[in-house]
């Protein structure tokens, strides 16, 4: 039985191994993912981002508990940073999610960023697809939480939650700096701390300055994740946003957008690789070198000539022959 077939039968080891192959960018992983693709496009994906220590993992733990009460099957991808110096990493998000370790319907995967920018890993979308094929109703993504440019999660999640805490001073400023319009729900966590009301009001005031006509206006809520206070409200807000997406036909549009973006990504990266391979194998390298040595032709003209020739020969783009494929 192939890994893909085992994944469809909810084989934990097979799923975990496939995730590993994808994370390590081993070609076999993609072969298996191809077979799984038709079974994906069903999970609801929730992204959680915010600074380190804001309580993201604690919040994930609470959301798992809340969704499990409804009988939902859960996947979690939690990303922590790799050391830029050694490539090693300590992945500690699971510490907060320990109570779900023995629940067979909760699959948690910790990933190291491995130098990928944007708050997630290069493999996150593919690993999401594996969890989707495993039949997870809800997949939660927790970002690294270091940079302010963690916007990738917004593309990969149906609902993205921005977590902030009182007392970070310029944190609300950081939110203002550009992510205001991309969060679907704002959480002021650690509401037991001084300054929570102020942080809450500041976020509301900033949202007030944006005109939302026709778009979903993000709610702002106060939460105490460590004791589970405000979680019911958060779940309700998530469902509100989900309903908004469904009512506006955006839930399915999300998956078609993802498919298109993945297609483009693969196309572009393969394009480069394949053309390079073809050019390196060209039998006329000795000729070209001679032309250049004797200055018969300049490097620019030669390079463009070779490329023009390469791209036009055999390429049937735009013809019927191509569109039938």
């Amino acid at each position: 039985m192939s890994l893909a077939e085992k994944v469809l039968q909810n084989d934990i080891r097979a799923a975990a191994r496939l995730m590993r192959l994808l994370d390590d960018e081993v070609e076999e992983g993609r072969e298996e993912l191809k077979k799984l693709y038709q079974y994906t496009g069903k999970s609801y994906i929730i992204g959680i981002t915010g600074p380190p220590g804001a309580g993201k993992s604690t919040l994930v733990d609470q959301l798992i508990a809340a969704f499990r009460k409804e009988g939902k099957k859960i996947g979690v991808i939690a990303v922590d940073p790799s050391s830029p110096f050694t490539g090693g990493a300590i992945l500690g998000d699971r510490i907060r999610m320990q109570r779900h370790s023995s629940d067979p319907e909760v699959f948690i995967r910790s990933l190291a960023s491995r130098g990928h920018l944007g708050g997630l890993t290069a493999s996150t979308e593919e690993i999401c697809l594996v969890m989707d094929a495993m039949g997870k109703d809800i997949i939660i993504l927790e970002t690294v939480g270091v940079g302010q440019d963690e916007v990738e999660v917004v593309d990969l999640a149906h609902t993205s939650i921005l977590v902030t805490v009182p007392g970070l001073g310029d944190d609300v400023q950081a939110i203002k700096a550009g992510v205001m319009e991309i969060g679907n729900i704002f959480v002021v966590n650690k509401a037991d701390r001084e300054g929570a009301d102020r942080a809450f009001r500041e976020i509301v005031a900033m949202l007030d300055m944006i005109s939302w006509d026709g778009r979903f206006r993000p709610p702002v809520i106060k939460v105490q994740a460590h004791i589970g206070l405000g979680i019911d409200e958060l779940v309700e807000k998530i469902y509100n946003h989900k309903k908004f997406l469904e009512d506006h036909g955006l839930f399915h549009k999300f998956f078609s957008k993802r498919a298109k973006s993945m297609f483009e990504k693969v196309l572009m990266s393969e394009l480069g690789k394949r053309l390079k391979k073809r050019i390196l194998a060209d039998i006329r390298w000795a000729d070209w070198e001679r032309y250049l040595e004797t200055r018969m032709i300049d490097p620019y003209t030669l390079a463009f000539n070779v490329l023009d020739e390469m791209i036009t020969i055999n390429y049937k783009g735009g013809t019927n022959e191509f569109s039938r494929l």
């Binding site: 790799s82 050391s83 050694t86 490539g87 090693g88 990493a89 300590i90 992945l91 500690g92 699971r94 510490i95 320990q98 370790s101 023995s102 910790s110 190291a112």
Partner: peptide, 16 residues
Amino acid sequence: LRDAGFEVIYTGLHQT
């Protein structure tokens, strides 16, 4: 272990 380049998953205390 991290400083030696390994990816370490740390889980906290008291698991079975």
